[in-house]
Design a protein around this nucleic acid. Structure first.
Length: 494
RNA sequence: GAGGCUGUAGCUCAGUCGGUAGAGCAACGGACUUUUAAUCCGUAGGUCCUGGGUUCGAGUCCCAGCAGCCUCACCA
């Protein structure tokens, strides 16, 4: 086993009087910051008889994981990596002395080390720390993946994300981009006067979206509970309570299929602004996205597979009906023609409301074709039970969805705040639908809250995982979720 | 939930017609004081996903299962 030789080196390190599991190591610089000091290297003029000009560089201290190792007799080149970058180390037997050299001979790929040394360039110009003192920080008793290809098996990459992060090119920077995007979203909202709150994740009624919830149970109260599927209804209660600009950025859970765009738990942003409407939220959405692009140092063009997403502001805006007509060639107002179209596609139409049929045709024929970014605005009211109707047109709801690469990224309404209409919509939506299929689950406490007066408001939801996918050019949601759901790993037998 | 593809050394992958297991990297031993996926010589390393079946003989063919990926369904 490979482990045996690593354990043998571990013992050798112990025999040198060094703790193979290391300890506190203060005052080291980030490798990116060390690399930035290249300009401080000075080169003395070449003296008579000298082959190489003498360099003076800054003294630096670094720490990281050994990712490459080139042993060359009494000389070892190591590449160490931290979460900001990678740099080469030069360890020469004559330069570091016998004690350090004895330790250097115990190094394996994957070990964590710290070094003190001088930052200079090698003959070939590679920026390098010429080690003067080696500090052993932690032994790795497992072999890292192949150094050139890294881990490529998607199953291993997800199950052992720690290896993927540590060794696969670009993985750690992408997840750090994710945190930068999330931080940026919070900054944008804070700058717009929003406060962040934490609502309950265990709900007695899983409302606010159309999705199957995970069921659980509270023992002491002997009460069935659901993991939340949306943040909406509690945030609106806070609008009633006077939190005029409020958001939550957190995990929601949907007991549904897994796909390149779906994970059972995912991160959702919902934001509500009193005295705003869906137009307010459209502006906010665009600001959140553009700020996030800036936060990761991306431009306005993002490569997406074979295509490029152009985030140049302002994003296109078209109405639902316009797009419907454009992509299907059928008038959205001609219910008979729409039904015929739906039948032609093979959709089940019997007994369905014309707007539901229209919506299914839209999903089938329009959404996938929306390269975007494009705001689709003004949805059929009957598929929007939580949305205010447009002034003077009772069949249109003030709702938009933002589509990019056929993916729904954001969904926003002018919020319905009429308690009587809300209650009626809850009731009528429930008729003929399985409750779990409906966005409108009767929630009496929510109705009671509305009766106390919820200000007219705009509300917005953004799927954060999808936002990260789009901004980082990742075509699979598992590329931006650290630990996506997997089946149980079968324990190795023997 | 349905269909298709995949599963071989720590990692990345070959493996022909069914004839008894291969490479590169990593590891181990040796050479090498400016290398860059270092190089060179040598050594070792296998529950071929699991369980059945066919066969004189199975990594290879058949059946079942497990896991991953893709497509579809559900959904964001």
């Amino acid at each position: 086993m490979h482990e045996a030789s690593r354990r043998a080196k571990l013992r050798k390190i112990q025999e040198l009087g060094i703790d193979p599991w290391g300890s506190r190591f203060d005052d080291h610089a980030r490798i990116a910051d060390i690399r930035a000091r290249e300009g401080e290297i000075t080169v003395e003029p070449l003296a008579e008889g000298q082959r190489e000009p003498h360099q003076n560089g800054p003294k630096v201290r670094a720490a990281g994981r050994i990712v490459l190792q080139r042993k060359k007799g009494k000389l070892i080149f190591l590449d160490i990596r931290d979460w900001t970058g990678q740099i080469q180390l030069f360890v020469g037997r004559g330069q570091v002395g016998e004690e350090n050299w004895a330790l250097a001979e115990c190094l394996d790929l994957g070990d964590l080390v710290g070094v003190d040394g001088e930052l200079k360039r090698t003959k070939t110009g590679e920026l390098t720390i010429f080690v003067e003192k080696l500090h052993f920080l932690t032994k790795s008793i497992e072999t890292p993946p192949e150094k050139h290809h890294g881990l490529t098996d998607p199953e291993l990459r997800q199950r052992m994300r720690y290896i993927d992060l540590a060794y696969t090119e670009g993985v750690l920077p992408k997840f750090l981009d994710r945190t930068k995007i999330v931080a940026s979203v919070r900054r944008t909202l804070a700058a717009s006067g929003y406060v962040e709150v934490e609502g309950p994740t265990l709900h007695a009624i899983a409302g606010g979206a159309a999705a199957r919830p995970f069921k659980t149970h509270h023992n002491a109260l002997d009460m069935p509970l659901f993991m939340r599927i949306a943040l909406e209804l509690h945030l609106k209660r806070l609008l009633v309570g006077g939190m005029e600009r409020v958001y939550e950025l957190g995990r929601v859970y949907r007991n549904e299929g897994i796909s390149p765009r779906h994970n059972p738990e995912f991160t959702m942003l919902e934001a509500y602004q009193a005295y705003g409407d869906y137009g307010t939220m459209m502006d906010l959405t665009e600001r959140i996205i553009l700020d996030a692009l800036d936060a990761i140092g991306a431009g306005r063009q993002i490569t997406w597979g074979e295509r490029t997403i152009d985030f140049t502001s302002p994003f296109a805006r078209k109405t639902y009906d316009e797009l419907f007509a454009e992509h299907t060639g059928v008038s959205p107002d001609d219910a008979a023609a729409v039904k015929k179209l739906a039948d032609g596609i093979g959709l089940e139409t019997a007994g369905k409301h014309p707007d539901v049929i229209k919506s299914e045709v839209f999903e089938e024929r329009v959404e996938d074709a929306l390269v975007g970014p494009i705001f689709v605005i003004d949805y059929p009211a009957s598929i929007c039970p939580l949305t205010k109707r447009k002034q003077g047109s009772e069949h249109i709801a003030e709702r938009f969805e933002l589509f990019i690469q056929g993916m729904e990224l954001a969904n926003a309404y002018t919020e319905l705040n009429d308690p009587d209409l809300q209650e009626e919509l809850f009731r009528t939506q429930l008729q003929g639908q399985k409750e779990e299929d409906s966005m409108a689950k009767m929630d009496h406490d929510f109705i009671r809250a509305l009766r106390h007066g919820m200000p007219p408001a705009g509300g917005l939801g953004i799927g954060i995982d999808r936002l990260v996918m789009l901004l980082t050019g990742s075509q699979n949601i598992r590329e931006v979720i650290l630990f996506p759901l997997l089946r149980h790993e079968e324990p190795r037998r023997g």
